[in-house]
Design a protein around this nucleic acid. Structure first.
Lengths: 340, 340
DNA sequence: CCGACTAGGTGGAGCGCTAAACCTAACCCG
DNA sequence: CGGGTTAGGTTTAGCGCTCCACCTAGTCGG
């Protein structure tokens, strides 16, 4: 059926090990002519090594898992934003000759199984809540190198990559403050659960502190980062927070919902209320008004994560401490000076 | 190191085969008490079967590939539409106990390697051009069951799943015609390359034929389905096609670009020009005006694809002929009657 | 009471590959 | 000219699992 190493070896009149060495570029032990001959036969016969056999025999599988929460009771699906990151990570892995196993995780216990069953060389844990990550680390990670993206777990087992959430939020708040805003609503998920949000909240506050201002802690809305939740916040903004002149949302999709809600309630963005988001999704440039936001470079995030993970696998060393990716303010049309 | 079948077998005082039977739910040959005992030990010891070993020894790997075109430098998943489908496919596979190997394909030749190296049980080819698909099928698919989503290849090797592109485009054109539009611009990629677009074009024309109207074949713009290309079309629409009163774009993202271009050129949507898209991305509801479009049920598409593929793998039968998923008109704010 | 059958197993071969140890002739240098 | 080295291999022993063939004691119909 399948063309195996033995077939090639027989046809070339050498041992299987020699073919194996050629295929794996282990030039040291094989003469140029043999390499040439084996290569030709491999190409002719269309030989493709069996990754399962290789990963069974060797330690390494050259397979990296991307584990993404899929806890959402109803949909159990991984979020589109995460799928997009998956695409970036796949590209980085492919460049380096690794393969990507994409796996949604509905329950932390599944992680052990996911890591072990394919003898993954390593795994990226994308966007888990801190608490989930702690539970995951307690479950034995069994020697598989693991790296967390977009999480702030306290434990030391997993290092990580993340955007500079603190600086980004600070940048956003500084932008609004510089425009003259003082009463700024903070809209996002509960920051006791989500480290990313916690960091953004701290950065947000820090901008006020730096400017010698105080922030009124009534000006907060705890919501999920969905368009629907944003819409709701926007609709009741004028009545719930009549004196707010601007909104900082922890995610673009939320910000866009909020903008729509504000418009629906009869006010206008940015004249009555300025809105700023976070992430810089493509989407931001498509809505009206175009959303001012904090850009994080997803490609760089993916590339860094892969570099750290593969580096750690290939050198056998522990990866460096957590790495933070820089952010930028992208000024568009959803922010302006407050009405006087 | 790793807990193996042998460890469990030794501890339970049975043969490896018995443990294997228990683990794989092969109840026929094992007594209830033995099942119970083995189950307990498996749980205690945290045994996870090795997928590589299993797929080496058995025929089946329970691994499905998701192959997506990936032009060399950029990542795949450029289109939001592919992202959405990928997410749904992962969920459907996970439900059925399969794993997903995500793989970008820069060159058709890579497909053979991608299919064989992990002994995939099957693969979904997502959004390949017809011509690429033909080249892929020529390369030996080597017994791996393969199913194409969103392609119209002429060859018989791969069946597929796709939206009813013909009916969808016809619906869109009928909607515009019913509103009173006669000069409708068709904007989309070259339909000689892309089967999906070809079908949509035919459906578009068919609506004119049914209504006893003729369509002026100057009213066409061949562009990529990106926001930027749409913007360009929109900007020059008034000068290039001054008498057009409506635009049918073959993708939402393109339609949204076109709307923005039209607005930028000083005209307004839908008063001056109506615009209709295709796909019904979430995005459609976030832009201003909200985009009228043709909805295709991505969840159903993914579920159908997975069902067909797994069904064909498990029964060993060839999958049914291509399946077409129904579409709907979603009327929002971007279409209205033409100015009189 | 015999042959056939069934329930509940066991044992060994082998899937395709690689790590590690081993082999052998040629070469090289003091 | 003999010991060490090197280039270019080979051999052996699994990796963890499943398929297939086989075994054995009970059971049961005729």
């Amino acid at each position: 059926m399948r063309v195996t190493l033995r077939d090639i070896a027989d046809e070339a009149g050498v041992s299987m090990m020699t073919v194996s060495n050629v295929v794996n570029g282990n030039k040291a032990r094989v003469s140029p002519e043999t390499i040439e001959r084996v290569r030709r036969i491999v190409a002719e016969r269309g030989y493709v090594p069996s990754a399962s056999a290789r990963s069974l025999a060797a330690k390494s599988s050259r397979l990296i898992g991307l584990l993404v929460p899929a806890a959402d009771e109803d949909s159990m699906m991984i979020s589109p934003h995460n799928v997009a990151i998956a695409g970036q990570i796949e590209r980085e892995l492919r460049k380096r000759g690794y393969h990507l196993l994409l796996r949604g995780i509905a329950h932390p216990d599944e992680v052990t199984e996911a890591l072990q069953s394919w003898s993954l060389d390593g795994a990226v844990l994308l966007g888990f809540l801190d608490e989930e990550l702690d539970r995951i680390s307690k479950a034995t990670i069994g020697g598989v190198r693991v790296l967390a993206v977009d999480s702030y777990s306290k434990n030391r087992i997993t290092t990580g990559v993340r955007a500079d959430d603190f600086a980004g939020a600070k940048l956003a708040a500084e932008h609004l403050i510089a425009l003259g805003h003082r009463r700024i609503l903070f809209a996002g998920p509960s920051f006791s659960d989500v480290g990313v949000v916690h960091q953004r909240f701290e950065g947000f506050l820090d901008a006020f502190a730096d400017a010698g201002l105080t922030w009124d802690d009534d000006l907060i809305e705890t919501v999920n980062t969905t368009h629907a939740d944003g819409l709701e916040v926007g609709l009741r903004l004028l009545t719930a927070h009549p004196r707010a002149t601007a909104v900082f949302a922890t995610a673009d999709i939320l910000a866009i919902g909020i903008m729509e809600g504000i418009a629906d309630s009869g006010a206008s963005v940015p004249e009555d209320v300025s809105v700023i988001g976070f992430d810089n999704l493509d989407l931001c440039a498509y809505v009206t008004p175009k959303l001012t936001t904090i850009a994080q470079d997803i490609g760089e995030k993916a590339a860094t994560a892969v570099r750290m993970l593969i580096g750690s696998i290939e050198t056998g060393k522990q990866p460096r401490k957590a790495v933070t990716i820089g952010v930028d303010l992208v000024e568009r049309a959803s922010t302006t000076r407050p009405r006087t």
